[in-house]
């Protein structure tokens, strides 16, 4: 019983780290462009396919495939920002909600048309290495995913805190007009933000594609869960979002292991509803 419990905790933390990658991108876009991007799940899905095809057709190793997917998706996300979202920056939120929802449906169906619905798996070549300690099992693949996702989250936090572009991103998020008056090119900041958000989603998609499956519909529930995470963690709060992501990973994993796996996708939303009732100010408190 306790072994199952700790095994589920471990799985939950890994899942949570992946959620953090997805939710942080969503949160950045929301904070800086004031856009709710419901197509973010498709960034994750397309990223996963990019990695899958890199391995299948180019024969590159898992890590290289992930980097190709990240770069490719950063580029695609930048183009989407420029063409689809740029015209509605500064307009009420309903614009971006409708637009991105349409984009999400379009991208998922295009993927369905071209890639077909059968679930495919990304082979990392690391799944066969199995380690056990204290009765817990972990594969080399999951260790790699845990390390990579933690590394990427820390890299993002460092980038935003210390680099010139990162500081400019915070400035735009806090006061867009003041940022323009200071000579910050906000259009460039928008591009960078979407590039980062796309790259992180692609990394997450690659990891999930290795642990589970890649298919054209994989983005739908993930984007909703990410909105739950961003709501729980507080908009624009990096630490809050990471914390909420791991919490959601744990809730899913423990709920799936001990209550019923069939409702795995429902637990995050139940948690959100519960929190709205019990702690309406959000986990981190304040605004």
């Amino acid at each position: 019983m306790t072994t199952i419990f700790f095994q589920q905790i471990l799985n939950g933390v890994i899942q949570g780290c992946i959620y953090a990658l997805i939710a942080l991108g969503l949160s950045l876009v929301f904070g800086i462009l004031e856009i709710a991007n419901f197509a973010h799940g498709e960034f994750y899905m397309i990223g996963a396919f990019m990695a899958l095809f890199s391995i299948t057709f180019l024969g590159v190793p898992f890590f290289i495939a992930m980097i190709i997917a990240m770069i490719g998706m950063a580029f695609v996300a930048t183009v989407i920002e420029r063409v689809v979202f740029r015209p509605i920056v500064g307009k009420p939120l309903i614009n971006s909600m409708l637009l991105s929802f349409g984009l999400s449906t379009a991208l998922a169906n295009l993927a369905l048309y071209f890639f077909k619905a059968d679930p495919r798996k990304i082979t990392s070549g690391l799944a066969s290495y199995r380690f056990s300690f204290l009765g817990l099992y972990i594969t080399g693949e999951r260790i790699a995913i845990l390390v990579l996702s933690v590394f990427l989250v820390l890299l993002l936090a460092w980038f935003i805190q210390y680099t010139r572009t990162g500081k400019a991103m915070r400035a735009v998020a806090q006061d867009r007009t003041a940022a323009q008056l200071a000579g910050i090119n906000i259009r460039r900041i928008y591009s960078v933000t979407f590039a980062i958000s796309g790259a992180l989603a692609a990394a997450a998609g690659t990891m999930v594609g290795a642990m589970f499956f890649v298919n054209p519909e994989m983005g739908f529930t993930v984007v909703l869960k990410s909105f739950v995470i961003v709501t729980l963690g507080g908009f624009g709060k990096i630490k809050g979002v990471i914390f909420a992501a791991i919490l959601i990973g744990l809730v899913e994993s423990l709920g799936g292991g001990f209550i019923s796996y069939a409702y795995k996708d429902a637990y995050p939303f139940l948690l959100l509803i519960l929190l709205f009732i019990l702690k309406p100010e959000g986990l981190a408190g304040g605004k």
């Binding site: 915070r170 400035a171 806090q174 003041a178 008056l181 000579g183």
Partner: peptide
């Protein structure tokens, strides 16, 4: 040509030094 806007509009969650650094973004 630079402007100090009405209502100050400093970035409240950035340090004084970061605010100044960003002022020299160009």
């Amino acid at each position: 040509l630079s402007q100090c806007p009405e209502g100050r509009r400093v970035w409240p969650k950035m340090t004084v030094l970061e605010n100044l650094e960003m002022g020299a973004f160009s």
